[in-house]
């Protein structure tokens, strides 16, 4: 199918992509790989991190991403949303005498407010992302072609994306609402914005992903462009060969140190693990319509994923074929 081959071009043709998933499934890996694929297609990309986590920065050998976009490499830029700084800036633009604004932002109340006021951090984060997407207050006057958000774990990400609707319903008027209406317009624009889900071929991540599909469609009104199934074990043997290996294992009665036995035993482990993974991959693939294009990411034999590992993932994807694509 045509859309199948061009899934990546479709995805990267958007302006804003939220990468979502349960904690620990590889959201950061997918975010960076997508950014690399976009840069390969000659796009200017901004990778955004939300929340307390600093995984993107760590992979790029930096402690933390800065609050305003900094070039990481190629055409890839990185930034981290800082809700406190956003609220400060917001108050400074909306409160008339500057000294009052200063008094507010310097008072201890300000920090309490930021923690206790429902959704305030989320509003500030969304506002920031929106301004990056539309290119407001960009010092270089050079808009990003694509903004990729490495979202917090599903629960937090969901409350983030639900907020504009809730807020508009709750408050109805005022400058914040006006801004949230613009944000909502951007989020629900299916041509411009989409979700990408990341999961593992394991019970909980798969269930959470399947449960999230209707939420994306109905509650958020946002399309899921692709689902990435991370850490898929290799399957080097076909079913006949697998039975052959199992049969040989039963015959090889030699000592546990026998090289043949060890080789076969190792293969059996891989086969068993992949068999379990297949159950969950089948489950998620049965939701292909809701989950967009399904992309398997092979297991990486490392405990410390490097940029090169991620680059290998990105280059295994089809080139986008768009203008400027380098194969």
């Amino acid at each position: 199918m045509d859309t199948d081959r061009h899934w990546l071009a479709h995805l990267l043709g958007r302006r804003l992509v939220f990468v979502m998933g349960k904690g620990g499934v590889g959201k950061t890996t997918v975010s960076i790989a997508l950014a690399m694929a976009a840069a390969r297609a000659a796009k200017r990309v901004l990778l955004v991190e939300v929340g307390d986590c600093d995984a993107v920065g760590r992979i790029f050998d930096e402690q933390e991403l800065p609050g305003s976009p900094r070039r990481l490499f190629d055409n890839i830029w990185g930034a981290r949303v800082n809700p406190r700084a956003e609220l400060e800036a917001y108050i400074h633009t909306h409160v008339a005498p500057a000294f009052i604004a200063r008094r507010i932002t310097r008072s201890r109340l300000f920090d309490y407010l930021l923690d206790a006021a429902p959704g305030l951090k989320e509003i500030m984060s969304l506002g920031r992302i929106w301004r990056w997407v539309v290119g407001k207050d960009d010092p270089l006057k050079q808009r990003f072609d694509l903004v990729i958000v490495d979202a917090p774990a599903t629960g937090h990400a969901l409350s983030l994306l639900r907020l504009p609707r809730q807020l508009i319903a709750m408050i109805r008027f005022g400058p914040l609402v006006a801004q949230m209406k613009e944000v909502l317009g951007m989020l629900e624009n299916h041509e411009q914005t989409c979700l990408v889900l990341v999961t593992l071929p394991e019970e909980l991540p798969v269930n959470e992903t399947i449960e999230f599909y209707p939420v994306a469609a109905n509650t958020l009104n946002m399309p899921v462009a692709a689902t990435f199934i991370n850490m898929v074990f290799p399957a080097p043997f076909n079913p006949e060969e697998i039975s052959c290996i199992r049969a040989m294992l039963e015959e090889t009665m030699g000592s546990p140190h026998d090289p043949c036995r060890i080789l076969l035993e190792t293969a059996r482990r891989d086969i068993d693990q992949r068999t379990v993974q297949n159950i969950y991959m089948d489950q998620i693939r049965s939701h292909a319509e809701a989950g967009g294009h399904m992309v398997e990411i092979p297991f990486c034999y490392t405990n410390d994923l490097s940029l090169n590992d991620i680059r290998r993932i990105a280059t295994s994807w089809p080139t986008t074929g768009g203008p400027g694509a380098i194969s």
Binding site: P234, F237, C244, T252, I262, L263, L264, T266
Partner: peptide
């Protein structure tokens, strides 16, 4: 002992493990 066309794949699997 083991079919020869299995060996490279078994070797890779073992190496990975």
């Amino acid at each position: 002992i083991i079919p020869s066309d299995f060996l490279p794949r078994l070797e890779t699997g073992y190496e990975n493990y």
